[in-house]
Structures are given as structure tokens and as C-alpha cells.
Amino acid sequence: MTITTLSSRELNQDIGRAKKAAKDGPVFITDRGRPAHVLLSIEDYRRLSGGRRSLVDALSMPGLADIDFDPAPARIGLRPADLG
């Protein structure tokens, strides 16, 4: 993995270079010499963010049967509607 650093000015002058560099690793974008942003490929972003999981995937995770879950009953107060 290659890490590239570009200033905001360099990014504005050659966005194609930044996009190409992001294929090989993160591109740090500096503002006044300090890191301000990171450009990632979509694959790297999905890997870091864990991607999207479906509800079925989340509920079928290993070890969920070992978790105690005993929520308190929900109490919903109902009152007659005022139609007057």
C-alpha cells in the first residue's frame, strides 16, 4: 500500500493524479500543511467501514445465542380519541 500526500492546491490542479494514486492506497490531502482529508478508493472505504450487512446477516452472526436479552415489556398507554 502506498500513501500519497497532496496539498489542496495540487489536488485542484490534478484530480486525475489523486484518483489514480487512491487505487494504490490512501491519499492524504493537506490544508496549510496539515492533514485535512483522506481520499480512498471505494473498495478501501467499504473494507474499512465494514460494508453493508443485511438484517439476516446481522441476526445470524456467530455467538448471538449466548447473549442474554430480556427487555422490559412495553407499556403503551391508550386513551379514547376526542372526536368532539
Rank of each mutant, 00 (worst) to 15 (best):
18 A>R: 08
26 P>Y: 00
55 L>C: 00
53 R>V: 06
83 L>Y: 15
18 A>G: 05
47 R>S: 14
80 P>V: 04
41 S>P: 02
43 E>K: 03
36 A>K: 15
20 K>H: 13
42 I>A: 10
10 E>K: 04
77 G>F: 07
44 D>S: 13
77 G>S: 09
27 V>E: 01
54 S>M: 02
69 F>E: 04
50 G>Y: 07
79 R>I: 05
16 G>Q: 10
13 Q>I: 04
65 A>R: 04
80 P>E: 08
26 P>G: 00
43 E>Y: 03
74 A>T: 06
72 A>N: 09
23 K>S: 07
39 L>C: 09
28 F>I: 15
61 M>V: 05
43 E>D: 15
47 R>C: 11
72 A>V: 12
41 S>F: 03
79 R>N: 06
84 G>M: 05
2 T>D: 10
82 D>A: 14
22 A>H: 01
15 I>M: 12
66 D>V: 02
51 G>S: 12
79 R>V: 05
67 I>T: 06
36 A>Y: 07
68 D>E: 09
24 D>P: 01
10 E>C: 04
39 L>P: 00
10 E>A: 06
14 D>M: 10
2 T>N: 12
72 A>M: 08
7 S>F: 00
33 G>Q: 00
83 L>T: 14
72 A>Q: 12
42 I>W: 09
54 S>F: 03
6 L>H: 01
35 P>N: 11
32 R>C: 09
21 A>K: 11
68 D>L: 03
61 M>Q: 08
27 V>K: 05
72 A>G: 09
28 F>E: 11
